[in-house]
């Protein structure tokens, strides 16, 4: 990565699903309206300055104020309001029962992603990466573990805040396979600028395969290795969970499939052995203020072992 999560064309104007699609039309229509009104105002100013006396006299009366300043905006705004409210109702409708359920929790400064079963129990946990099948709505529950964050994946939908003490609901749907970037949109403190995530939309059968692999990874027993011993002894396990092991920390991201992820550090680094080493060893120089301490006191050998261990977590 280390490239923006979005590129040209602007994702707001390049929607990938039905919860973002209508807003493209809205954006163009509103921009068009803006351009027209601006032109009208410039034209009126020009007439006021240079126009023929008859025009100026007409523009210079109270009637023109009532027509251009009251009647015209009232009509345009009423139409916009009706359109806007209808669309609000449509986009805000909760997903039907039986839709895939996910909970995304904003934490300083990353996103915890939990896949839920229909009863709302957590069946798998991930970080900064949400896999969804294309062509079907996904119901996302938005929560916060600390301060207010906001979940925004502009290709798929508008944003919604993640507020402590509340659960907000958002529905997204991707109609095309791809990787869609997301960011935290509500200022949440020091590393707010480096809090990103990706949504990966698979074709439904591909998603099924991915899901199977993900479940298998969680279920596979992890053989004890020098790396795992170091992982627990150095304190990693105090904050991180690896499913099926005695590492059950809840503060940091779940690392069960960390090696399979596309990004590190909250959507900001590509995931390879080098970046992993750098992140584990000295994450503070990469993302200042993040909650993970530097592990530069480890021997090189030890760091290697830990990273080797992490690389087995697929």
């Amino acid at each position: 990565m280390t490239e923006a999560l979005f590129g040209w064309p602007p994702p707001v104007l390049d929607p990938m699903g039905p919860y973002a699609e209508p807003v493209r039309t809205v954006a163009w229509a509103l921009s068009g309206m803006g351009a027209l009104v601006t032109t009208l105002v410039v034209a009126a100013l020009f007439v006021a300055w240079r126009g023929p006396p008859v025009w100026r006299a007409r523009l210079g009366g109270q009637t023109s104020i009532l027509v251009f300043g009251v009647a015209l905006p009232a009509v345009v705004l009423a139409a916009l309001l009706i359109w806007g409210l209808m669309l609000t109702a449509k986009l805000d409708r909760p997903a039907a029962d039986g839709a895939m359920r996910v909970r995304v929790t904003g934490e300083m400064w990353w996103f915890r992603v939990q896949y839920l079963d229909p009863q709302g129990r957590v069946i798998a946990e991930d970080a900064n990466e949400l896999h969804i099948p294309t062509g079907q709505p996904v119901a996302i529950e938005l929560a916060s573990a600390d301060v207010i964050h906001s979940f925004w994946v502009p290709h798929l939908s508008g944003k919604k805040d993640m507020i402590p003490g509340r659960t907000n609901r958002l529905t997204v749907q991707a109609d095309r396979i791809g990787r869609y970037g997301g960011v935290c949109a509500e200022y949440c403190g020091r590393a707010h600028a480096l809090m990103g995530m990706v949504v990966i939309a698979h074709a439904p059968d591909e998603f099924g395969r991915w899901w199977g692999a993900r479940r298998a990874a969680a279920a596979t027993p992890k053989p004890d290795s020098a790396g795992f011993a170091l992982f627990t002894d150095s304190g990693c396990a105090a904050c991180h969970t690896v499913d099926g092991t005695r590492a059950v920390g809840r503060t940091g991201p779940n690392l069960t499939n960390v090696a399979a992820r596309q990004t590190l550090g909250g959507g900001i680094l590509p995931n390879n052995r080098g970046t992993m080493t750098g992140w584990v060893g000295h994450s503070q120089s990469i993302k200042p203020g993040n909650r993970m301490p530097n592990y530069d006191r480890l021997e090189p050998r030890q760091l290697q072992d830990i990273v080797t261990y992490l690389e087995t977590l697929k």
Partner: peptide
Amino acid sequence: AMFVFTMGGLTGVMVAFVPFDWQAHDS
């Protein structure tokens, strides 16, 4: 100022349009 304010007012109407604001808000 009239010109600039007109433009600002019009983007104001845009963000008063709720679905658009969900995209534009805090950006």
